[in-house]
């Protein structure tokens, strides 16, 4: 049984395509022919996967899907995924890894809107930039990212981590406006600049600003107690992400809490 597939792009579709159905677990048991004939929605029509991609069987130690090409019109790659591995060599569309519960996604390129929204488990690593509403909630939903790990090597757009509830999200580059708005819990670490209005309506959770220190809003207040134990645990956990997050243990942070406008117990950690 083939468990690992390489999809080599033949053509870029005219419209956006919902790619959620093509998960490593679901295609693991198929033949190359069955996989090539998988129908994908294209507007009001469908298109066979084989028209868009050359299907190549590969050896692997578990369910894996490797995609090569410009995938910006493929939305929902890895959406709802519950195991296995997806590797994309190129940029991807919206909803990357949304509602994923387990497994691993690696994208060597940019990702569109709503990446890792409602992520519940597993690990997503994006080599390039990510659009707005990453690590947030599905549109209209009240819960955002609730588990797992999201790593963005480049920059992130606005509303990163909106309504986030659990898990760890790390951005090596800059983030846009309204970072961690309405955040409920979890950890977000940022390695560079931060946009306007960070942590607007933040209730709980932890923000680590390893790069630029944003201006602290009036609705946050400093605390002066010793958080050395917690910081040691968190810094050790962030160190493997490298870059600005390596060596945080020696930079005991300042701490502010808020958003007091919502009776918040969220914290910003501002390493020295």
């Amino acid at each position: 049984m083939t468990t690992a597939w390489l999809l080599r792009q033949r053509s870029i579709p005219d419209l956006g395509i919902d790619f959620a159905a093509v998960s490593p677990g679901r295609v693991a048991g198929l033949t190359a022919d069955e996989l090539a004939r998988t129908a994908l929605p294209l507007g009001r029509e469908t298109v066979e996967l084989g028209e868009l991609f050359e299907v190549v069987a590969r050896g692997g130690d578990g369910p894996e899907l490797r995609i090569e090409g410009d995938c910006r019109r493929l939305h929902g790659i890895g959406r709802g995924m519950d195991g296995g591995r997806i590797v994309v060599d190129g940029p991807v569309g919206d909803y990357l890894g949304a509602e994923m519960t387990a497994g691993e996604i690696r994208v060597d390129g940019d990702a569109g809107l709503l990446a890792a929204c409602a992520l519940a488990g597993g690990r997503i690593e994006i080599g390039g930039d990510v659009g707005d509403f990453a690590a947030s909630s599905l549109p209209g939903a009240t819960d955002g990212m609730r588990g797992g790990v999201l790593v963005v090597r480049g920059d992130a757009g606005a509303r990163f981590g909106d309504r986030m509830r659990r898990g760890t999200a790390v951005v090596h580059g800059a983030v846009g406006d309204f970072l961690a708005s309405r955040m409920v819990a979890g950890t977000i670490a940022v390695g560079a600049a931060v946009g306007e209005h960070p942590a607007f309506g933040m209730r709980r959770g932890t923000l680590v600003f390893a790069g630029d220190k944003p201006r602290v809003p009036d609705t946050f207040s400093p605390t002066a107690h010793d958080i050395g134990v917690f910081w040691a645990l968190l810094a050790r956990s962030l160190a493997p992400f490298g870059g600005a997050f390596d060596g945080l243990g020696g930079r005991l942070p300042g701490r502010v809490v808020g958003d007091l406008a919502v009776d918040g117990k969220g914290e910003w950690l501002l390493p020295a």
Partner: peptide, 24 residues
């Protein structure tokens, strides 16, 4: 009610405010 839960690498820790700082 002032205690804070923190999940770090799959383990949950509690941070309880006490007079010398916090008990983890």
């Amino acid at each position: 009610g002032w205690q804070i839960s923190k999940m770090i690498d799959g383990k949950r820790y509690w941070r309880v405010p006490v007079m010398d700082g916090e008990f983890v």
